[in-house]
Design a protein around this nucleic acid. Structure first.
Lengths: 205, 205
DNA sequence: AAGCCAACCAAGCGCTTGCTTGGTATACTG
DNA sequence: CAGTATACCAAGCAAGCGCTTGGTTGGCTT
């Protein structure tokens, strides 16, 4: 049952290296979200992956390190995804939509677990871990801020850009607690609803 | 279920009864918020109160019970505070303002710690604990919903009431993570900013 | 074929955890 | 005054925790 040992694959010299790590990270994101980091034990996590608890420490040097890895991965990816979307957006309105879209996709898409962990378990990270991720975090929010400065210049919004940015970010992040992607409302509809919140006038499309 | 122990009455025969409990609950709210429920130990909590860890269990039957008591107290109080504010508000706009105001005051006022614990540590509560608080929670959100149904009828807002309610609630709750009551922006200004978010047209006073 | 090394298991160590126990000081009550 | 209940302390227990250790396996390289 326990298929172990590397397998042959394309040109990769170490084809299976990292596959176990991947499964650990996915299970960790799911369990850390469901049960909380502190309440999730390494034995639980190992069971979910299908290995012994001690074997986890062959891939990560500590439980804290697993949390860090989960968070680092998602924070890097969401920042990259946002950067790409913003590049493709030309108008200020399209850029605000890109902000909302990216956050919503990460919050409710395939990366939902890791995203929730990033939001929820920040305080569980060690001081050094927080410091190591802070620059990425800042970069992500700088993008938000730049968009709202632009939108304000264009007269698209009529509140203090910083406040508006934070209120919108909260509204979107909070959807994790009530919005059901399998329910009647589509993500696109939710995106439009959030967008129309921050624009002065009538709702969009 | 908070044990009652000695009777508290008008002319309190045991003036100090309940004082220890009060200090435990306050310290617990603070520590559970700062460190998280799971990472905060009963020894830590006892130290903060100035008693031995074992003595905590004279007042509460378990650590879980302390969490429950913190949450129950704040959920009852915030619902009562909201009900009172809503009664005093006549127009739909004034009622929306009451929603925002109450949530903001609890999030940033003297009850900030317990409110943050209620939001953040819900998953740490036992199944029975959640069930026991669910009715109060529902009542609170029913008040939100009724206000937004009214606002929609009055043509004050132009989005689906349920979605708008959730988005606003998220925006306001999230202020816990960025708004500084000691900073340049007053709570009233923040309240107005949040209100103008959900109203269709120009910002309010 | 021999050697290497990543990937795993089985066992368990040292420590911390929530909580219990037995006892004491103090205060109120009949 | 004895009787009773409260509020606490000092000590420690059983369980569970993160993590370490020593050993085995099997594919890959040379």
């Amino acid at each position: 049952m326990t298929a172990h040992g590397p397998q042959a694959s394309e040109q990769n010299k170490r084809p299976n290296t990292g596959a176990a790590k991947r499964r650990i990270l996915d299970a960790a994101a799911r369990l850390f979200r469901q049960r909380g980091f502190a309440r999730c034990t390494v034995r639980e996590l190992a069971d979910a992956v299908g290995i012994q608890s001690g074997s986890l420490f062959h891939h990560f040097k500590s439980k804290d390190d697993i949390l860090f890895a989960v968070m680092e991965e998602v924070i890097v990816d969401i920042d990259a995804a946002l950067a790409e979307r913003l590049d493709e957006a030309t108008t200020a309105e399209a850029k605000i939509r890109a902000l909302i879209h990216t956050q919503l996709v990460f919050t409710h898409g395939p990366r939902a677990n890791a995203t929730a962990v990033l939001v929820h378990e920040w305080a569980a990270l060690s001081t050094e871990g927080q410091a190591a991720l802070l620059e990425r975090r800042r970069r992500y929010f700088d993008r938000w801020h730049a968009v709202f400065l632009l939108a304000r210049q264009d007269g698209l919004v009529n509140l203090d850009p910083t406040v508006l940015q934070q209120l919108l970010h909260g509204a979107v992040v909070w959807t994790a607690y009530w919005y059901d992607p399998d329910g009647p409302m589509t993500l696109d509809e939710l995106e439009s609803a959030a967008l129309s919140l921050v624009l002065k006038s009538a709702p969009v499309s």
